[in-house]
Nucleic acid binder design. Structure first.
Length: 375
DNA sequence: TGTTATT
């Protein structure tokens, strides 16, 4: 099991290094390997004067990310007026997107520039201006099949753009070969545009194609079979908040694995692990009541919060990051803190990132101790 | 038939 952990984490770090050297950027052409997006359209460019310059929609969030984590991540940019993670009304499951409304439009712009394309666990988040909420923009997503295998994303957009403003497009590819499966999605700005595209393109042959394509409204991903719904209810969000027994077992298991690997004495007595809430106020290293505080040492002077999100995010739920800066120069003083919700994820992050080479520095990562008192 | 796009 531990070997599996190491193998997994090597992959996480390999993926992370790519991300660290290619920080999230704002562009018009790509958000991940196969989705064309339109993140840079400013409120002015997109038309209506009613478009908010402070309200953002954040898509492709990890399934287990909470509203608090969303707020914490985007709060590292600037003051947030309001924040909402959209959840299924019945199951409580995250629908994988949310809204962040800043006080200052400049912070909203900065969030798009710095957080769009950020990798969190298995997802690449998308950050863009939210359009004014309206019934006319709902149910505007189309499923397209029968596409020529040679058709590119751009060609697909060119074909559909005559009917309106495209919000996202995607062509599905074979996971092994990378070859187009001839099916895709087009999300229009407005439902009427999608309706016109169906009328104009369904059962029609694209230029140069030998077979007609099928264009219809896409299934809503929240419309699942009762079986899928049941299995979903069995999993999260309860997965993140296991009962005391499961929690205890998880802690012991991971703690013992780490002990075996590193020969360290167990940090936790059976009393101390009996539920997270009971730990509040008790002097447990690294534990701050709301999560597990991790000390990160040997950061470069120009390090910022995003580097901490990028390093620790892949290991699980991160609720807060902080780079400690010199009051006068505003440069990083060489260390920072990361708070993670789950002990096991924090422990794996520490085991994986301690000794990690970031640029020309070797990081020291550990649970925060009480050796350094608050000034 | 998706990395669940409108609270």
């Amino acid at each position: 099991f531990f070997l599996w952990l190491i193998t997994c984490n090597a992959q996480v770090i390999a993926a992370m290094e790519t991300q660290l050297s290619n920080g999230p950027t704002c562009n018009n052409t790509s958000n991940g390997p196969s989705t064309i997006t339109n993140n840079c359209s400013s409120p002015v460019e997109s038309g209506s004067v009613e478009d908010s310059k402070t309200n953002l929609i954040v898509n492709y969030l990890p399934q287990n990310m909470t509203q608090e984590e969303l707020k914490s991540l985007f709060g590292s940019i600037g003051e947030i007026e309001s924040c909402k993670l959209v959840r299924d009304k019945i199951t409580g499951q995250s629908l994988g997107y949310g809204f962040v409304n800043y006080v200052d439009p400049k912070d909203a712009e900065k969030a798009i520039n710095t957080l769009n394309g950020l990798r969190l666990q298995t997802k690449t988040i998308k950050v863009s201006y939210a359009r004014p909420s309206s019934a006319s923009i709902r149910d505007a997503n189309l499923y397209v099949s029968g596409l020529p295998k040679t058709m590119t994303q751009k060609e697909l957009e060119q074909l559909f753009s005559q009917y309106g403003r495209i919000i996202t497009s995607r062509i599905l590819v074979d996971q092994v070969t990378g070859v187009s499966r001839g099916v895709g999605f087009i999300r229009f700005d407005r439902r009427v545009e999608a309706e016109e595209a169906i009328k104009g393109l369904n059962c029609q042959k694209p230029p140069g194609a030998t077979e007609p394509i099928t264009v219809k409204f896409a299934n809503n991903p929240s419309q699942k079979t009762s079986q899928a719904l049941l299995s979903q209810l069995y999993q999260s969000p309860n997965r993140r908040y296991p009962g005391p027994l499961a929690q205890q077992a998880q802690r012991f298991r991971l703690d013992n694995l780490l002990n075996m690997a590193y020969g360290v004495k167990s940090r936790f007595s059976p009393m101390a692990i009996d539920g997270v809430t009971s730990l509040a106020g008790i002097n447990i290293p690294g534990h701050a009541g709301t999560g597990w505080c991790i000390f990160v040492y040997n950061l470069a002077p120009d390090a910022d919060e995003s580097i901490l999100w990028q390093m620790f995010g892949p290991f699980g739920a991160v609720t807060n990051v902080k780079v400690i800066r010199d009051f006068n120069t505003n440069k990083c003083k060489g260390f920072g803190f990361v708070t993670m919700t789950n002990y096991d994820e924090a422990a794996v992050a520490i085991a994986s990132l301690n000794g990690y080479r970031l640029g020309d520095r070797v990081l020291q990562v550990s649970f925060k101790t009480n050796k350094t008192h608050k000034a």
